[in-house]
């Protein structure tokens, strides 16, 4: 699990806001290129890696996790060295005031989201909804200096180093969905020692946070026979709806039943988990999963897909929390699924 922690720290720190995955693709390729026989980077911001098992007529199994993270783009450079931003992907404006970000312009600079001093507030304002348009990012530069460094469209992301908490919990940014990239890489390490009955294709897709874009195009180009999509899911926290009580952090990967995925492949995944004594949980989400699963399953003529999620708290904030044990168990599960190979549907 220390291995997963190491990989997670590296992955979390790569900047790659949706739509600008190009910022981080090369570093990603440096980090994991060696796991594959060959790899390519696509125009829509995805990394595609291939491992051939060497058997003629072998089927191809796809592992998908998304590489992009939520963040912001600069939309305006204002007097006083402040930046207005628009959100990329779903951001909760409640957690932004006085928080730190990194701005990836001609060089990388630090910024602080503003918070209104009390004397500028109306009474009762702290109970009213916060809008991103009311906030700005303080860069500490003057407007002229700032215009040399950033422009409209410059990406901005949370600044938040990964840190261990008690037990095997860790906190940091972009575990959605880098922690699943870590799980896939760990699974590939497990598989190094095994005979592969199928070819493995891996896509670290771009554009998920803005609508599953990369997964559709990457799956189209790979055209696999089956697919496993890995993403994160909201773990149970106080005040979450009751039905989430069965998705506990530490309870193992959550396997989804959905009309957007293949029931047969999902049943098979559950069977593999049980056979190998790997802890798992179940989640029902028939109409929509909010992940790449639907986009992959409807690619080309249809690709049977199963969705497995790592339970996570504080999604889309700078301090997401996961359990390393869950990530380990998910890595184990998908490696056993690949090794099992006989996915006859």
């Amino acid at each position: 699990m220390d291995r997963i922690y190491e990989i997670a720290c590296e992955l979390s720190s790569i900047p790659a806001v949706s739509g600008r995955e190009d910022m981080g693709l090369h570093r990603l390729a440096e980090l994991c290129g060696d796991y594959f026989d060959r790899y390519e980077l696509t125009p829509v911001g995805s990394f595609i890696g291939r491992i051939d098992c060497g058997r003629i007529g072998a089927k191809t199994l796809l592992f998908d996790a998304h590489f992009d993270e939520v963040g912001f783009f600069v939309s305006e450079i204002c007097e006083g060295g402040f930046l207005k931003v628009v959100n990329i992907g779903g951001i909760d404006p409640r957690i932004l005031s006085a928080s730190e970000v990194l701005i990836y312009g001609k060089r990388t600079i630090t910024g602080v989201f503003t918070s209104k001093p009390p004397h500028l507030q109306e009474p009762g304002e702290s109970e009213k909804p916060i809008k991103l348009t009311d906030l700005a990012v303080d860069t500490g530069y003057l407007k002229e200096q700032l215009s040399e460094i950033v422009s409209i469209g410059t990406p901005v992301a949370y600044k938040s180093p990964v840190e261990r908490l008690q037990g095997d919990y860790i906190t940091g940014k972009s575990f959605d969905d880098r922690i699943c990239i870590a799980a896939i890489l760990r699974a590939l390490e497990f598989l190094k020692e095994k005979e592969l009955p199928v070819n493995i294709a891996v896509q670290f897709s771009g554009g998920e946070e803005i609508g599953y874009k990369g997964a559709a195009t990457a799956s189209y180009s790979i055209n696999p026979d089956f697919a496993v999509v890995l993403d994160v899911t909201n773990a149970y926290v106080p005040d979450a709806p009751d039905y989430r009580k069965d998705i506990k952090i530490g309870g193992g990967g959550s396997i989804s039943y959905s009309a957007k995925t293949s029931r047969k492949l999902t049943d098979k995944t559950v069977a593999v988990a049980r056979k190998n004594g790997i802890p798992y949980q179940l989640f029902a989400e028939p109409n929509r999963t909010g992940t790449n699963a639907g986009a992959v399953q409807t690619s080309r003529g249809g690709i049977p897909t199963v969705l497995i999620s790592v339970p996570l708290k504080n999604m889309h904030t700078a301090n997401e929390v996961v359990s390393l044990l869950d990530v380990y168990n998910v890595a184990k599960l998908i490696s056993e699924l690949a090794a099992d190979g006989g996915i006859d549907l």
């Binding site: 696509t42 125009p43 829509v44 783009f73 939309s75 628009v86 422009s151 409209i152 469209g153 874009k213 990369g214 559709a216 195009t217 990457a218 189209y220 180009s221």
Partner: peptide
């Protein structure tokens, strides 16, 4: 100049996502 439109879409998206995707 550069522009960001916070509402509305364009044909750009269709072309970007056709098949295996393009620039």
């Amino acid at each position: 100049q550069y522009e960001i439109l916070t509402a509305g879409g364009t044909d750009t998206s269709s072309m970007q996502l056709a098949g295996a995707g393009c620039d």
